[in-house]
Write a protein that binds this DNA or RNA. Structure first.
Length: 319
DNA sequence: AAAATTTGCAACCGCACGCCA
DNA sequence: CTGGCGTGCGGTTGCAAATTT
């Protein structure tokens, strides 16, 4: 007998999330914290399955998420990490705390994969955008070696949970960085008001949206169950979220500055690994982005293994 | 200017895994 | 030990926006 569905499919709404739903979800999580997703639809009245709630939260509503264009640095990291880890997007995302695995996966599939293909078809060197990326030879061997390497790395990771966290040279970690929601407080009241004033059919236009490539109007497709589904700009979702967070913080703290510690502690047990649970990044980053190594991908794995073997302490903690 | 095609991304689906009774 | 449940993960899809014809 097969597993029952994660949720009752009858009456479950699908498709794009509306701002109302986002607000309900965020409010609930702000009160109860993430987790126990099963109870979220029940307790909030959201006509969404628990999975959908979790996905919406982790991929979109969670604080600390950076949206918009990937930087060169991020792109290189993804390329290198993908070479090391394969399509283990969650693992890759753990090294890019501001990005979700879904985001990284999408970026890989839509941008980097093509780049790879281009390079593979013999245009190496012609690509002005990415001179650090080249298709490795003997991929199977390397993958095998990678897996061994990763097993070692995972072990180190597991054993170094209580090690001090790296911070320097490290991309800002959402669990310690200043909340972007607090920083956008100025716009928030206005944005929230804008959104509230506009009819659901009139999407909130970006007033401080991230520099995303374009804006998708999620529209009513896929969520026809609600005849009056609010259409809104996906890229402004964070704007709505900003509004929620900051609105709440404004009501409790006149300064409008969210108590980051409160929020951060609140979400410490999220799906994204905290900095404490990560392998010290600086050394890996340094190694990954060492130009010499980057230009010599064939030696990448060997270098890493060698490095690990010759300097095992580097993989434990920064000295 | 309009139609056709491509692109990008949010969301869904199904499987896997760990926990617990 | 076993089965149910909750959650996480990776692959895939659907559709609006952007681009090309």
């Amino acid at each position: 007998m097969g597993r029952p569905p994660c949720c009752d499919k009858v009456g479950i709404k699908k498709g794009p999330w509306t701002p109302e739903e986002d607000i309900i979800l965020v409010s609930y999580i702000q009160e109860h914290g993430p987790g126990n997703w099963r109870s979220v639809p029940t307790n909030t009245g959201l006509m969404r399955c628990s999975k959908s709630c979790r996905l919406r939260w982790t991929n979109y509503l969670r604080p600390g998420i950076k949206r918009g264009n990937f930087t060169d640095h991020e792109e290189k990291m993804i390329i290198h990490l993908q070479a090391l880890l394969g399509n283990r997007w969650a693992a890759i995302a753990s090294y890019l705390p501001q990005r979700t695995d879904n985001d990284i996966k999408n970026y890989w599939n839509t941008h980097l994969k093509k780049k790879m293909k281009r390079l593979q078809t013999g245009t190496e060197g012609d690509d002005e955008e990415d001179d650090s990326f080249s298709q490795p030879k003997g991929q199977w061997e390397r993958r095998l070696q990678t897996d061994i390497h990763m097993a070692k790395q995972a072990l180190c990771e597991a054993l170094s949970l209580d090690k001090p966290t790296e911070t320097e040279n490290k991309p800002p970690n959402p669990t310690v960085q200043t909340s972007p929601y607090a920083s956008s407080t100025e716009n928030i009241a206005r944005l929230l008001q804008n959104w509230m004033n506009k009819s659901p059919k009139n999407p909130t236009q970006q007033t401080n949206s991230p520099p995303g490539p374009r804006f998708i109007n999620s529209g009513t497709s896929g969520s026809s169950s609600s005849g009056e589904t609010a259409t809104y700009n996906s890229s402004s979702n964070n704007t709505v979220l900003d509004s929620v967070w900051s609105f709440k913080s404004d009501t409790s703290q006149q300064s409008g500055s969210v108590d980051d510690n409160t929020i951060n502690s609140m979400f410490q047990d999220e799906t994204k690994p905290s900095s404490e649970s990560q392998l010290p990044l600086t050394l890996i980053e340094n190694w990954l982005f060492d130009d010499g190594v980057a230009q010599n991908q064939d030696d990448l794995i060997n270098d890493s293994v060698l490095l690990e073997e010759t300097s095992p302490q580097l993989f434990w903690k920064k000295t």
